[in-house]
Design a binder for these strands. Structure first.
Lengths: 123, 123
DNA sequence: CTGTATCCATGCCGATACTG
DNA sequence: CAGTATCGGCATGGATACAG
């Protein structure tokens, strides 16, 4: 998105999707919802995320007050991340969408296959 | 996302977000939820979307069985888009997220401002 | 009016290397 | 362990031109 459009102001969900739509955010939130977690532990469990994207994602979430960052200096230094109350509430708001996804997953795959079959005929 | 990761299979919400996270999809679905709409009418109301992205977005949604496409040939030719039952159910599943967004919008902006103020101090 | 095809700028993100 | 900095490839998406 190059510039904020007219619809942006009127549509708060657009803002949320910009944050949540990157896919990593939701995975991180889902993991943290299970309980606080350290950086590298998160890195292992999210699987596939690069060190950079985990750092960036966590910064964004922290910035938005969705994730808390607690530093316990020592040898070695530890940083523990967790969901804030706001983060938990976002996770809850995500639940219906997750349900929908789970319930329609297969039907969507079928539709997609059918659609592509039609396209193949046309070509 | 370069390749499907381990988490992908287990996490259906990831699939949905890939579809819905592009921001245009949600706006189009929201508009169509108000009632059927023609291509150019949609183009005007979504505001900011390019012809290309509207076409691509509609194709994807149709492909997934979320949007129906009805052609009424004539002079000039007309194409009307509308939500399918599945599309309506997705819109419903999106509602809690939209509510959350509306309710936390301001708080997030505040958090962000505060965070950036802190960062400015550090620098 | 409703698209499709092409071109090209932008920006995302993974890989890598380095720091406290 | 927990990051930041930099580079470079690749996909996204706007602009434009063209077609049915």
């Amino acid at each position: 998105m190059p510039a904020p459009h007219a619809t942006s102001h009127a549509c708060p969900i657009r803002d949320v999707l910009d944050r949540v739509g990157d896919a990593w955010s939701v995975l991180v939130i889902t993991e943290l919802n299970k309980g606080p977690c350290r950086f590298n532990a998160l890195r292992r469990v999210v699987d596939g995320i690069s060190q950079r994207m985990l750092a960036v994602t966590l910064r964004q979430l922290e910035r938005d007050g969705l994730v808390s960052r607690r530093v316990t200096d020592g040898r070695p230094p530890q940083v523990t991340y967790g969901l804030t109350a706001r983060g938990v509430s976002l996770h809850a708001a995500l639940a219906p969408l997750a349900d929908w996804a789970a319930r329609h997953q297969q039907a969507i795959r079928d539709s997609r296959a059918a659609f592509e079959a039609t396209q193949a005929l046309a070509a």
